[in-house]
Design a protein around this nucleic acid. Sequence first.
DNA 1: CATTACTTTTAGATTAGTCTAAAAATATTT
DNA 2: AAATATTTTTAGACTAATCTAAAAGTAATG
Lengths: 219, 219
Amino acid sequence: MFSFTEENYLKAIFKHSQKEGGEVSTNTIAEELNTKAASVTDMLRKLADKGLINYEKYKGVTLTKAGRSIAVSTIRKHRLWEVFLCEKLKFRWDEVHEVAEQLEHIHSDLLIDQLDEFLGYPKNDPHGDPIPDKNGEFPKDAQISVENAKVGTNYTISGVSDEDNNFLKYLNKLEITLGLPFEVLERFEFDGSMTVKIGEERSLQISKEVAQNLFVAKV
Amino acid sequence: MFSFTEENYLKAIFKHSQKEGGEVSTNTIAEELNTKAASVTDMLRKLADKGLINYEKYKGVTLTKAGRSIAVSTIRKHRLWEVFLCEKLKFRWDEVHEVAEQLEHIHSDLLIDQLDEFLGYPKNDPHGDPIPDKNGEFPKDAQISVENAKVGTNYTISGVSDEDNNFLKYLNKLEITLGLPFEVLERFEFDGSMTVKIGEERSLQISKEVAQNLFVAKV
DNA sequence: CATTACTTTTAGATTAGTCTAAAAATATTT
DNA sequence: AAATATTTTTAGACTAATCTAAAAGTAATG
């Protein structure tokens, strides 16, 4: 069994090895976990001893199979709990993360299997992020950021970045939810902003920042 | 906010101050938590410093208002999660405790309020134990142990002791569940065993130990 | 390519929670 | 009430996770 802390380190390493493709640096992990580089170094040695990461001093780290498996299973738990909180307990987008951060560390295979069944084997969490299955496989979903969406094509809103709670509150206020029809009406190159149609009626102006953090899929 | 460990100590103290009525001894706590008396003494000093218990060396402890409040709220969480696990996730009696021990330490008022509503404000957990409300009030329920039940009176099974998992498994096997009609047919004084009727048809023999751990209420 | 800047690691300390062994206090028994 | 037994506390040590400050490595720049 692994500690909360170990699971959080593995999750952080997984997250950043997706983005930058390879080794994850000590500082990156420290920043992600709001801790200090020295603390990270200590923990890396421990995780390496346990065979969860590949670690060479000054070289950054990658996950081993075992490490990846724990990271992904923690992400699976996190996202299933988010679905539960939103769908069953009426949590808002911006309220789920903090609680799911705690729930993801509950250890019980039975619990998570039964929860999955209870929720109807959801494929995505409330922000549109894919939920890996029991074997650690992520469902491939072809969503793109609004920044790269084509003018005039019909999309549906399929995902939102859950990095920033204020962004989620902003979406809440504008009543932007997953599943709504979406179309880019006009794009302004000088500042990256655009006019978009959301739902059947509403057209509005969104900034480049919003476009980067909102994801859509072809209908 | 309080740690898992602190919450568990407070829960243990609450539990035993119910039974024996007054001060709880260091050894009692040590036994309840599978730890050593020396560790308990350390923690008692800490809890006393935080104003959660009344503690005088060598005199045993009682909970302060603040301490009781945390203990009861932890028990409330534990029992609500047990209802969730049994009713929604199809856990068996003997499977809930271990997972609820973890879930009870999740900190979120919103979570527990919404869970309560989702479950329909249950009054008792799956073992029949009362669930305190938000203000820490326990619903009074007049259940008695089968040991003290009268021959010939009509009861319903209303609670079971959840101390021993093997006992719960035994009840499972005999298909004894809460809500079943119950009557004592005959009592044998020499060993405390009795013949009882459970449900409409079935009559069976139960030992003194079973009688002590099974609770019934008048219909 | 030497100097500066940044990143990472080491060294040594700290806090929470636990332990064993021994000392002190309380309870029990003769 | 003296001797023995039990309970509780103290003293000192350990582990996990963290920190600050300083040293060591790596990268960037003039």
